[in-house]
Amino acid sequence: MNRLIIIDSNKCTGCGLCQMACSIHRNGQCEASLARILIYRDEKAGIFIPMTCRQCTDPPCAAACLMNVISKDYETGITIRNLEGCISCRVCQVACPFAASIFNYLQERVENCDQCGGDPQCVKYCPYGALKYTDLTDNMDLVRDAEAKRRLLP
């Protein structure tokens, strides 16, 4: 099984260190909008939900891409982009349900998280353990999943 960045939003305080780490590491520039992870913030309710690429098995961004530059790396399970071919039409941004295709205005390309080649910086810098880089099966909270399913389905 491939490793994934697992997010526990209950632990997130919205400090934004993951975004800074990502942006500096990948762009050399400290800017939250350049980070490949974003935090949905509802300050009134105290909800902070980090969102990043979930490395879908059958990614909708790849299906939508007008230039066929998005593909799956079947060894690592990562969704990869050949940015040479990208014309930044932004269709992948609209097709991604998780808002994980990030428009990088410096390069005028749309990017997604590639887990920094196996050493994700955001996970390293998260001070509260909201981000983990582990095997998916270790983290399945089966009880909560079942409960959510029971309540979601009428």
């Binding site: 949905y40 939900i49 969102m51 998780f98 959510a148 309540r151």
Partner: peptide, 21 residues
């Protein structure tokens, strides 16, 4: 109405967090 139900419940909202944007 299902979406509204999810968004009104914090616990469920965290499970289906991708609706939030």
């Amino acid at each position: 109405r299902t979406v509204a139900k999810i968004l009104s419940d914090q616990g469920m909202m965290r499970r289906a967090d991708w609706y939030l944007p």
